[in-house]
Amino acid sequence: MKVIFLKDVKGKGKKGEIKNVADGYANNFLFKQGLAIEATPANLKALE
């Protein structure tokens, strides 16, 4: 799953980066902790 990092995550990505991560990692950790959002077309456009 492609995500946009909202904060730096050690060993995974930095704020503003768009990366592929495992679905479970994104859903169970990144999204719940507010560290990333899904890289949907709307979210990508808002990032610009």
Rank of each mutant, 00 (worst) to 15 (best):
L47T: 08
P41M: 10
L30Y: 04
G16R: 04
T40L: 05
K15D: 02
G24K: 12
L44F: 06
D23R: 15
D23Y: 14
I4P: 01
K14N: 10
P41F: 10
F5T: 00
K32S: 12
F31E: 03
G34E: 07
I4Y: 08
I4R: 01
N27S: 13
E38A: 11
D8R: 06
K14I: 12
L6S: 01
F5Q: 00
K15I: 12
A42V: 09
A42G: 11
Y25C: 04
K2L: 15
G13A: 09
A22I: 11
D8Q: 03
N28E: 14
L6V: 07
K2W: 15
K14L: 09
G24H: 14
D8A: 07
E38D: 04
F5V: 00
L44R: 06
A36I: 08
K7D: 07
V9D: 01
G24T: 15
N28K: 11
D8H: 08
K45S: 12
N27T: 14
I4T: 02
G34N: 09
K2D: 10
G11R: 05
G11I: 01
M1P: 05
G11K: 06
I4A: 01
G11T: 05
G24Y: 11
L6A: 00
N20L: 15
F31W: 01
L30W: 05
A39S: 04
D8P: 05
A46R: 12
G24V: 13
K14Q: 09
N43M: 08
L35A: 06
F31G: 02
K14D: 06
G34M: 05
G13N: 02
K32D: 09
L47S: 07
K10Y: 14
L35Q: 03
I18N: 02
A36R: 00
T40R: 01
F31D: 03
L30E: 03
G13D: 03
K12T: 10
M1I: 15
A26D: 07
I37F: 05
I18K: 04
K15W: 05
Q33L: 15
T40I: 06
A39V: 06
I18H: 03
A26M: 05
L44K: 05
G13C: 06
K15N: 03
K32P: 15
N27F: 14
A26S: 03
A22R: 13
M1L: 13
L47V: 09
L47F: 14
A39D: 01
K2S: 12
A22V: 08
N27G: 07
A36Y: 02
N28W: 09
A22Y: 10
